Amino acid sequence: MMQRTGTAATFRRVAALATAVLAATALSAGCGTGDGGSEGAGSDPGASAPADPKATLLAAVPDEKDPAFRFSTMDGTDKFTGVVDPAAHAMELGMTQKNEDPEFTMAMTFRVIDEDLWMRVKLTGIPGLHDMLKLPKRWMALDRTKLDDETEAPVYQNADPANTAGIIRTADTVTDKGDGTYAGVADLTANADVQSALGVDVAALGAAAEKVPFTAVVGPDGNLVSLTLEVPASGKKKAMKLVTRYYDFGKAPKVTAPAGDEVQKAPASAYEVLNG
C-alpha cells in the first residue's frame, strides 16, 4: 500500500542475491551457515467534526501539519515499518526478511529527505555475508541518477504513505459504526494512483474491484489509527487483508540525514543490487 511500488521487489532481490552468493561460495569454498495513535491530530482539535462520516474519516488522515509519527503496512506477506516526518519532508522505510536455506536475516532500510536518499542493509546469521555481497554496514548515500528504475526506490510524496485518503475517496459513502470505527466500500478502478500503490491486479478482480470493503479506526485524538482493506480472491491469488497503521504521533523521532562515520557514498555493488 505504499505510495511508490517496487520497494518490496527490491527487498526480495537483495535476499535472493545473498542466497545465490552463499550457494556459489558453498560450492567453491565450502561455506557453512551460522548467526494506537498518541498525541497529535490529523485535523484541528478545536474545530467541529464534519457531520459527514466520509469527511470525518478523511480529516483523520495524516497531513503536512502533523508531527512525526510511525506507521506500518502489511501487504499480504510484505510488512513495512517506518517513520514519517512531514515537517522535514522525510520518511524512513524498513523491512526485515528471514531466509531459511541458508538461514540468515536481512534488515533493509531506506531514508528519504526531500530528494536525498540513503539505504542501509544489515545481514545477520552468517559471518562475512556483508563482505561476500560487498555491501557496507553503514548508511549508503544513493545517487538517484544511477538507478535504472527510480520506482525501485521510495520517495517522499506526502504525509500519507499508504494512500489511505485515496482509498477512502473512492467510496460512495462511509458509515459511522460508532466508537471511532468506520466502514465503506472502495472502488479500486476509480483511481489509477491507488491501483499502482496497492499493487493489486485490478483486471483479475474484475467487477469485484469496484466493491472492496474497508474498515477504518479513528482514535480519540482524531488521528487515523488503522485502515484495513479486504481484497477478495482472484484467480490463483487468495483473499488478503491490506492493513495500514499510523501511531505515535508526536512521539516518533524526527528523520535526519545520516552524518559522520555512520554514512558513506554507495559503492558500485549497491547499485548492482538495486538495478538487478
Score class of each variant (00 low, 15 high):
99 N>Y: 10
172 D>Q: 08
121 V>I: 13
168 I>H: 06
139 W>Q: 11
120 R>I: 07
151 T>K: 09
174 V>D: 10
170 T>A: 10
124 T>V: 08
144 R>W: 01
176 D>W: 13
134 K>M: 15
157 Q>C: 00
107 A>I: 05
112 V>R: 02
159 A>K: 06
98 K>Q: 12
99 N>W: 09
172 D>Y: 07
168 I>S: 07
148 D>S: 15
160 D>E: 08
168 I>C: 07
118 W>H: 10
162 A>C: 05
159 A>L: 04
169 R>T: 12
166 G>N: 09
157 Q>L: 07
130 H>G: 12
138 R>F: 09
157 Q>K: 02
108 M>D: 01
131 D>I: 00
126 I>N: 06
116 D>Y: 02
102 P>C: 07
135 L>D: 05
106 M>G: 15
171 A>C: 09
180 G>E: 09
149 D>A: 13
166 G>W: 00
116 D>I: 01
124 T>Q: 14
126 I>A: 04
165 A>D: 14
177 K>Q: 14
103 E>L: 08
117 L>C: 01
120 R>L: 09
108 M>F: 01
173 T>M: 09
103 E>R: 09
106 M>S: 14
115 E>Q: 11
164 T>D: 12
158 N>C: 04
112 V>G: 01
133 L>C: 06
136 P>A: 04
131 D>V: 03
103 E>S: 13
108 M>E: 11
134 K>D: 14
152 E>T: 13
105 T>F: 07
148 D>T: 15
178 G>E: 11
158 N>S: 14
100 E>V: 08
140 M>S: 08
139 W>M: 08
169 R>L: 11
117 L>N: 00
130 H>S: 07
154 P>H: 02
152 E>S: 15
98 K>W: 01
127 P>A: 08
155 V>R: 15
143 D>V: 05
179 D>E: 15
95 M>E: 10
129 L>N: 13
178 G>T: 06
173 T>R: 12
173 T>A: 13
110 F>L: 04
131 D>W: 03
169 R>P: 02
174 V>L: 09
149 D>F: 05
140 M>A: 12
120 R>T: 11
109 T>M: 03
179 D>Q: 14
101 D>R: 11
100 E>H: 08
133 L>Y: 05
179 D>K: 15
